[in-house]
């Protein structure tokens, strides 16, 4: 089990003794709920029984299914939109409680998403009134989850879902502000960098943002991060995304220069060397010239160093070295 400390055999035996009555209760409750399910019991009592069982075991997906069936086939049927709205609020409160204890259980997130999809129109003629309220709350709820664990990918996925389905869309650029906040509080948060790459791609694609200008800002940001902690791999991956396929020679040269300077200050930096090899290879591939032998020699020297300081991946460096030498041989 993830992160659960091992117990001694004696402790296990003691625990089993204590668990006896719990097991009996769980089995009895499970049988009762499954029997109701078989009998297509969509009553409020059945609904309460699922609450009880899910509280003990929120991963029991069959019971979540049954619960949704009770709602759609039973409780919703005789209900006004107001009452449905009430029921769904209850579902959100319950799943929030569960998520605080089990932030990584797929089935709970899944149920929450189902609730959002079933918000009735209203109140009254304001068809999106409830939806707006729910969505505003969801954004806050998911931020809370990400404050507790900034890398929880369930929460990030859910966040993207919420953002994409808002009744009144928020400007996408506000997600740049949010990810910046997450990055400023811990720039090892690759989830935030990832999200940023998605948001930028979308904004550039829609013509809402100038890719050149915004990339300059990002380069500045990444430069600050790489000088602060050159061992953090997330920033180097993001940097690689910013440079892309290397179709801007001037930019490649500039970034190579920046990294060279950092390497001078931090001569044992694996990521400086690794990135220099990558960008120099881009130059070799995209801009063949008479400088090539020099570049090849540079790369080979860096790769030899990398084999030493990062020996776990030495075969990769060796493969790249052979590949580069074959380019060098070609020119």
């Amino acid at each position: 089990m993830h992160g659960v400390k091992r117990q001694t055999q004696q402790a296990i035996a003691d625990r089993k003794q204590r668990e006896k009555s719990k097991i009996e209760g769980l089995l009895k409750l499970t049988d009762a709920v499954l029997a109701r399910k078989k009998g297509q019991d969509f009553s409020a009592e059945a609904f309460d029984a699922t609450t009880q069982l899910l509280t003990v075991n929120p991963e029991f997906y069959t019971i979540w299914n049954y619960r949704r069936n009770i709602l759609t086939n039973g409780l919703f049927r005789e209900s006004t939109p107001e009452a449905i709205n009430e029921l769904l609020s209850g579902e959100l409160a319950l799943t929030m409680k569960f998520l605080q204890a089990h932030p990584k259980v797929y089935w709970i997130w899944n149920h929450r998403q189902w609730c959002l999809q079933n918000v009735p129109p209203g109140p009254g003629s304001d068809v999106d009134g409830w939806k707006k309220k729910y969505w505003a709350f969801e954004l806050q709820a998911v931020e809370k989850m990400l404050n507790a664990d900034a890398r929880n990918f369930h929460a990030w996925n859910y966040r993207r879902y919420v953002l994409a389905n808002m009744p009144v869309p928020r400007p996408e650029s506000s997600e740049l502000t949010y990810t910046m906040k997450k990055i400023e509080s811990n720039f090892s948060n690759f989830s935030a960098w990832h999200q940023r790459s998605k948001v930028y791609t979308s904004l550039w694609h829609q013509g809402k943002l100038d890719p050149i200008k915004s990339k300059e800002k990002e380069f500045e940001l990444v430069r600050n991060a790489m000088y602060t902690d050159p061992d953090d791999q997330s920033i180097w991956m993001y940097h690689r995304w910013l440079v892309g396929l290397g179709h801007d020679k001037e930019l490649l040269d500039r970034e190579i220069g920046v990294i060279h300077e950092l390497l001078e200050e931090q001569p044992d930096s694996k990521w400086c060397m690794e990135s220099l090899v990558h960008y120099k290879r881009l130059i070799l591939t995209n801009y063949p010239s008479n400088q090539d032998p020099e570049l090849v020699a540079d790369c080979v020297r860096l790769l030899d160093q990398l084999k030493d300081i990062d020996s776990a991946r030495r075969h990769r460096y060796e493969e790249i070295r052979q590949n580069i030498e074959s380019i060098g041989g070609r020119s």
Partner: peptide, 9 residues
């Protein structure tokens, strides 16, 4: 000033 405040694109 915030390092980058992009609320308003």
């Amino acid at each position: 000033p915030a390092a980058a405040d992009e609320e308003d694109t």
